[in-house]
Design a protein around this nucleic acid. Structure first.
Lengths: 125, 125
DNA sequence: TCAAGTGTACTATAACAGATAGTACACTAT
DNA sequence: ATAGTGTACTATCTGTTATAGTACACTTGA
């Protein structure tokens, strides 16, 4: 369910956060679903439980999941809505990169083509 | 000429690297231009000379600039070509983010609009 | 010639974030 | 009761980044 990159610059706990959010955004995880326990996931990923606790605490702080001590940790009702709001930040990332490509002389159509591919559409021509 | 963010995750020396490349990609720095000396730039930015040396060494390793000991450090002839090749990586970044936005239900047109803005074009409608 | 400015090399240290190890306790379902 | 949850805490290890300080070689130009 989760895939960890131990060599990149992004810390493990942030990878857990963003991957969880992505699973919710894409509908794989829905409201009421139980998240893997810190102990189980720590074994599966060979990661320290504290690291996962850190990730889950942050997700909880954001209102994306809630803990039921002794029971488990579950996706909230508002999770999808909250995660959805993050798209504005990602759009600004795209804008920033596009500005650099523009400055470097990469044609407009070349960038749009990339979006087409991501959205699984065919290019005309 | 350079702008340093001391709080982000990206180390200073990498900021110098990418900003130098951006200046070359956008044509501000051209073949034969002299780069600021490690000492001068270290004063201007309040950064340790070693940090800048590290950045410049990497730029040199990439063939983007060359050092003339006792004289200075200059942009190479191939710099623009080498830097230009980096656009493929940035396009794949855009593609990756777009795939997430697609999964999250953000409409295609919304992403393309962002590219329009970056390229300084007006949206039809 | 010599001073000033360039690049280069090296060691040592400080500072910080990330991750781990280990332990302990409270809660809940069965 | 037992096993599985979450939670809290301290201590430690590690790697990266950045700094400090010093020394040396080279080139330019007054």
């Amino acid at each position: 369910m989760f895939q960890i990159d131990r060599f990149g610059r992004v810390p493990i706990y942030e990878q857990i956060i963003s991957q969880t959010q992505r699973l919710i955004a894409s509908g794989v995880l829905k409201e009421g679903d139980q998240l893997p326990s810190v102990r189980a996931l720590s074994q599966e990923l060979s990661v320290n439980p504290n690291t996962l606790q850190k990730a889950y605490s942050e997700l909880e702080r954001r209102g994306i999941c809630v803990s039921a001590p002794g029971n488990g940790r579950f996706v909230t009702v508002e999770a999808a809505r909250i995660v959805g709001k993050g798209f504005l930040e990602r759009l600004s990332e795209i804008q920033q990169i596009s500005e650099e490509l523009y400055a470097a002389g990469v044609p407009f159509e070349r960038v749009v083509q990339t979006i087409h591919i991501a959205y699984g559409k065919e290019m005309k021509g």
